Computed example of a mutant assay.
Amino acid sequence: MSITLSRITVTAYRVPIASPVATSFGVMHNRPAVFVRLEDSDGAFGWGEIFANWPAAGAEHRARLVVEDMADLLLGQTFDSATDLFAQLTDKTHIRALQCGEWGPFRQVIAGLDTAMTDLEARRAGLPVAQFLNAEAAHTVHCYASGIAIAQADSQIAQSRAAGFSAFKVKVGFDLTRDTDLLRTLFTTLGAGETLCADANQAWALPEAERFVATCADLPLGWLEEPLPADAPLTHWSALADQCPVPLAGGENITGTGSFADTIATGVFGVLQPDIAKWGGFSGCWPVSQAIRTSGQRYCPHFLGGGIGLIASAHLLAAAGGDGLLEVDVNPNPLRDAFDPWAGASDRGTLTLATTPGLGITDLPDEIAGFASFSGEVHL
């Protein structure tokens, strides 16, 4: 059934935080998010989220891209499906992105719009998104605690454990000697059945990554994430994989079906982590998730943002099946928690998907309204 879009609403948000969130490449001093709503000529609607963590001014920039650079490609246009929208927008924004060299922002906006269109389609079909993608989709997904600062890992892991998590991921890549010493101590605190992963956020060149791997060779990490830049030569990734006794993980900074196909084919990664808000939305990430699983690699979607993107990632993981884990940033974020993804449950180690159509989101929570930094709406 064709879909003619008649209204687009987008809002950027920023929430002050008491404790900055540090990665090896920079520090987040607030929590941003961009939520977008599409409505068709029949009044059906859908919600999506656009990646907005970086750069610091990224949220407002991407929200303005929707209103000022994309609306002419959407309003009054008829699409056969979200996949059709994704393909058309990718094609029609190519020169615009080339002109300004902003491939990332355009891809991220298209990803959020695709998520909103998929939500709209699933609502029209009367199905949750997971079942819309796959009738045999699971109704629950397992989660792991992410965003844990290595220097505060003792307390953050204890808090995460109390919240029901049994798998944890700490951020490394700050000081190699200190990081490895702290990791070694953390392993002595883990309980039976608990898993610890490490994320370097692209911190190292090959020699530093090799040093880390050699120092931690006896530690049973669940995986080592982005020890090298995403665009490091394949020879460097292969060399590190040959030396690393635990799976390498990556994918949040890979874009394009072809790039994922090439990455999967190398066999370098044991865990692949596409981010639905950074590239692809459902139209791109759903086939990629299937290809990852078919290859025998593990699919664990990356996500670090607000509530809509987290819920969308959960639906995608549930549809894909397998032994994947949903990433849940455990740092305070009202733009995530206001959506109550766990429906009041205290155990966050498992997320049960709503059975309502689409992503189960009708309106944005009232309590986030005061954090809006930009709002825009265009309609026929």
Rank of each mutant, 00 (worst) to 15 (best):
A214Y: 09
E49S: 06
T215M: 11
G307M: 04
E225F: 05
T257S: 13
D69L: 14
F187D: 05
L353H: 06
G147M: 01
P247W: 11
F35M: 09
R298Q: 10
G344K: 07
V213I: 14
K92I: 01
Q297V: 02
H139L: 10
W47K: 05
A22N: 07
Q77H: 14
P16W: 03
T257N: 13
H302K: 07
P245E: 10
L304F: 14
V129F: 06
A149S: 12
Y13E: 09
F51D: 04
A338Q: 12
A209R: 08
T266V: 05
R123P: 02
N333S: 13
A22D: 11
R211A: 15
A203L: 02
D119C: 07
A149C: 07
H379Q: 14
D231K: 07
A135H: 10
W286G: 02
L182Y: 08
I311R: 12
A153Q: 12
R293I: 15
L325F: 11
A230K: 05
I308D: 05
L133F: 01
P301A: 11
T83R: 13
A22K: 11
A291H: 09
G281Y: 02
N331A: 11
G267D: 05
R96M: 15
I276H: 01
S2L: 05
S346K: 15
A200I: 09
Q108T: 02
A261R: 13
D154E: 13
L240V: 04
E68S: 03
W103F: 09
T294I: 14
Y13S: 05
G270R: 05
G324R: 03
R184T: 15
P274S: 05
R31L: 08
I50Y: 05
S146P: 12
A261H: 09
A18L: 13
V109Y: 04
D242A: 15
K171Q: 13
L120G: 00
S283F: 00
T235I: 12
C285D: 12
E327G: 07
A130T: 01
S6G: 04
H236Y: 14
R293L: 15
D366C: 06
D80N: 04
P128I: 05
L359G: 00
C300A: 14
D323H: 13
E225T: 10
L351P: 05
Q152G: 03
T11A: 10
L120E: 04
T257M: 15
H94N: 12
A52T: 08
E68P: 02
Q243H: 12
